[in-house]
């Protein structure tokens, strides 16, 4: 009798854990990377490299926005700068500092190319990425009409997971 009871209990435990596990897998998996971490995957995946993760927080502790976005010519758009290793070793973009003088040099591939393979270009944690429904389109067409066809930085990559929260 007691053996039967324990067996029943075990069966119930297994079924419960299976259900809980299934529920956990169905919940949207949100990465907990830093706000404003930029994943750049214009060419990396295609070249067999991990995508680049650029941490804004680390760089903003050392440099003001102006240094990269005014002096070095970085556009305010994830993936919008078309950075390649050829440009970097010529001293453009990241190469202005990552040259072994101001910061470590380009032979440390895995320090930048550290993203999970297949991660699309995005700004992690951006408001657009966190929207439950697509952004509101006002009646006078102000906001929506003003937006260009190719949605801004975080938006393009981010609006897709927002529409399908189940995965």
């Amino acid at each position: 009798m007691s053996l039967r009871k324990t067996m029943e209990f075990l069966k119930r435990l297994i079924s419960i854990s299976a259900i809980v596990g299934a529920c956990a897998m169905m919940l949207p998996q949100t990465a907990s990377a830093e706000y404003a971490d930029v994943v750049i995957n214009n060419y990396a995946d295609a070249a067999g490299m991990r995508p680049v993760v650029f941490p804004h927080w680390y760089h903003r502790i050392r440099f003001r926005c102006k240094v990269c976005h005014a002096d070095l010519g970085f556009q305010f758009k994830a993936g919008g700068n078309k950075i390649t290793m050829a440009k970097i070793i010529d001293g453009q973009f990241c190469g202005a500092c990552h040259n072994g003088e101001i910061s470590w040099s380009v032979e440390n591939c895995g320090m930048c190319h550290s993203g999970v393979p297949g991660t699309p270009t995005q700004i992690h944690g951006s408001t657009v990425q966190r929207l439950v429904a697509p952004a509101y389109k006002s009646l006078d067409g102000g906001g929506a009409a003003a937006a260009p066809a190719d949605a801004p930085a975080g938006g393009a990559a981010a609006s897709k997971p927002a529409a399908k929260p189940a995965k």
Binding site: Q29, T30, A31, S32, A33, E34, D37, V39, R50, V53, N108, C109, G110, M111, C112, H113, S114, G115, V116, P117, T119, H124
Partner: peptide, 10 residues
């Protein structure tokens, strides 16, 4: 953090 690859030593 879900974005960096833990298999990457860097």
């Amino acid at each position: 953090d879900g974005i960096h690859d833990p298999d990457n030593e860097g």
